[in-house]
Simulated assay, not measured.
Amino acid sequence: MTPLMPSVVAPVASDDLIYHVHAAGDSDEAWSGVLARIRAQFQVRWAALAQHSFATREARALYAAPPDPRLCEALADHSANNPWFLSSDAYREGRVLSGDELLSNRELVKTDFYRGMLLPHGLFHRLCGVIARRNALVYTLDLHRGPEEPRFGTRERHAFAALLPHLTLALDIRWRRRETEDMNRALTSMVNAQARAAMLVDEHAQLVFGSDGAKRACEGAAGLRIEHGRLVAAVSADDRALQDAIVSATRARTFDDAQAAHVLSLSAPGSAAPAVVAIRGAGPVFRAELGETRHLAIVTALNACAEDDHTDCAFVRQFGLSPAQARMNALIVTGHSIANAALALHISENTARSHLKQIFQKTDTHSQMELVHLHGRVCLSS
Rank of each mutant, 00 (worst) to 15 (best):
R240K: 15
I226D: 07
A234M: 08
E219S: 14
S211E: 04
A275I: 02
A249F: 02
H228S: 15
S248W: 04
A273W: 10
A249S: 11
R225A: 05
S267Y: 08
A233D: 06
L231D: 00
V235A: 11
A245D: 02
A214W: 02
R240S: 13
H228N: 15
A233H: 01
S211F: 05
V235M: 08
A217P: 04
R253K: 14
A260D: 12
V247F: 09
A249P: 05
S248I: 09
I279F: 03
R216I: 02
I246V: 15
S271Q: 11
V232I: 13
E219T: 10
R251S: 14
S248K: 13
V276S: 02
L242N: 00
A237S: 15
A275T: 03
C218I: 00
I226M: 10
D212E: 15
A258W: 07
A261K: 04
E227Y: 10
Q243Y: 12
C218A: 12
L266S: 05
A217E: 05
S211Y: 05
G210C: 08
T250A: 09
T254M: 09
I279R: 03
D256V: 14
R225S: 07
R280Q: 14
Q259P: 03
A268F: 05
V247P: 01
A221K: 07
A278T: 04
P269T: 12
T254R: 08
L264Y: 03
Q243H: 14
D238Y: 04
D257L: 12
V277C: 01
A237F: 13
S267A: 15
G210L: 06
A273P: 00
R251N: 15
C218D: 00
A221R: 11
D257E: 15
V247Y: 07
A260N: 14
R216E: 09
V263P: 00
A245Y: 06
C218R: 01
S248C: 13
V235K: 02
S236E: 15
S248A: 15
A233L: 08
V276T: 13
L231P: 01
I226K: 02
L266N: 03
A234Q: 06
R280N: 12
D256L: 14
A214M: 01
A272Q: 13
A233M: 07
A273V: 07
V277E: 00
L264R: 02
G213Y: 04
A214N: 00
A237M: 13
I226Y: 04
V277N: 03
H262R: 14
A237G: 11
A245P: 03
I246Q: 05
R280V: 06
A245T: 09
H228G: 11
A214E: 01
A237Y: 11
T250R: 05
A273C: 13
V276H: 02
E219G: 15
L231T: 02
H228T: 12
A221W: 10
S265V: 01
A272S: 15
Q259Y: 11
G223T: 04
S267L: 12
A261Y: 01
R253S: 14
G270P: 07
S271I: 08
D212N: 11
R230T: 13
A245H: 07
R230V: 10
R216F: 03
